[in-house]
């Protein structure tokens, strides 16, 4: 991939991330036997938010959030420039911490509860991501995405990694059943609650970037077989949407338990699988 192409991919990430999100919404509506919004609905929402009055609760709250968006975007750039997987994970962690701090910096109970829950869910999914990155390293011998994408396909060894990542996807994207940190019906969106107007826009666009972040993890599992990678992403996209539609939200402690038992457990199984069966 040329540098320009990577740059374009990264720069327009919020755009096609939005299409991704729009498809997600339509898909969900179809599963609920509804017509659903147009595919371009996320852009309508974003453009609408531009024309709303700008208001804030306090300045730091907004600044932390802006930097959350910027760091997340930087992480997405790093993905497209074929950066190191571990740096990407930790960069994402940094971005998430900015977001959490933003939630804490405002005097609102729902925002604070959202931050608390988000922090716990980070504790739940961060180890899984790292363990899976190690699995990827064990198979391809490198953390560099550009090198992984050039390596021959070895998906057989990464089956359990894939399954384990399937637990991470809904947690990062705050989808049911692992959406306790957003929990619209309990804490009114958690950290998002205090943003409005153009600033909510960034939170909204960050959702698209988060989607790109997690799905790119799944994509690289297929290494140089891009078609298979796309298939994996589409498959997990459907699977996650299906699960999202057919489960209730579980509590944050059940989330921790479930992620550690199944997600983390599968990560460990994956390491054993790779080391004992595949090498």
């Amino acid at each position: 991939m040329s540098i320009v192409f990577s740059f374009m991919l990264g720069f327009f990430a919020p755009i096609y991330g939005g299409i991704f999100y729009g498809i997600d919404r339509v898909l969900k509506a179809k599963m609920q036997r509804r017509k659903g919004p147009p595919v371009l609905q996320p852009f309508y929402d974003m453009l609408k938010l531009f024309s709303k009055t700008k208001f804030i609760v306090n300045a730091p709250h907004t600044i932390w959030m802006i930097f959350y968006f910027l760091s997340l975007w930087a992480v997405v750039f790093m993905i497209f420039f074929g950066g190191n997987l571990l740096y990407i994970i930790f960069g994402h962690l940094l971005a998430t911490v900015f977001f959490i701090i933003s939630g804490y910096s405002v005097n609102s109970i729902f925002s604070q509860l959202g931050s608390n829950r988000k922090l716990l869910s980070v504790v739940a999914y961060e180890p899984i991501l790292i363990v899976n990155a190690i699995c990827i390293y064990l198979v391809f011998g490198t953390f560099e995405i550009s090198e992984i994408l050039a390596a021959p396909n070895n998906f057989n060894s990464l089956v359990f990694t894939f399954l384990s990542l399937l637990f991470v996807v809904p947690t990062v994207l705050k989808l049911s059943p692992f959406d306790a940190s957003k929990a619209h019906q309990e804490i009114v969106g958690g950290i998002e609650v205090e943003f409005g107007g153009v600033f909510y826009e960034l939170v909204y666009a960050a959702k698209f970037l988060e989607m790109i972040f997690v799905y790119s993890f799944i994509f690289i599992l297929a290494s140089n077989d891009y078609i298979f990678g796309t298939f994996l992403v589409v498959f997990s996209f459907f699977a996650v949407a299906l699960v999202d539609n057919s489960t209730a939200r579980i509590k944050i402690d059940s989330l921790l338990k479930a992620l550690y038992m199944y997600g983390f457990g599968l990560g460990i199984v994956s390491i054993f699988w790779i080391l004992l069966c595949c090498i």
């Binding site: 730091p60 701090i101 804490y104 405002v106 980070v122 983390f264």
Partner: peptide, 24 residues
């Protein structure tokens, strides 16, 4: 690896739990 990755995440939780208090 297991202890390390989980422990590191918990340390993050520990620090930013306190950070929350600074900010609120």
């Amino acid at each position: 690896i297991l202890f390390f990755v989980v422990g590191s995440s918990i340390l993050v939780l520990l620090y930013f739990k306190i950070a929350s208090l600074l900010l609120s």
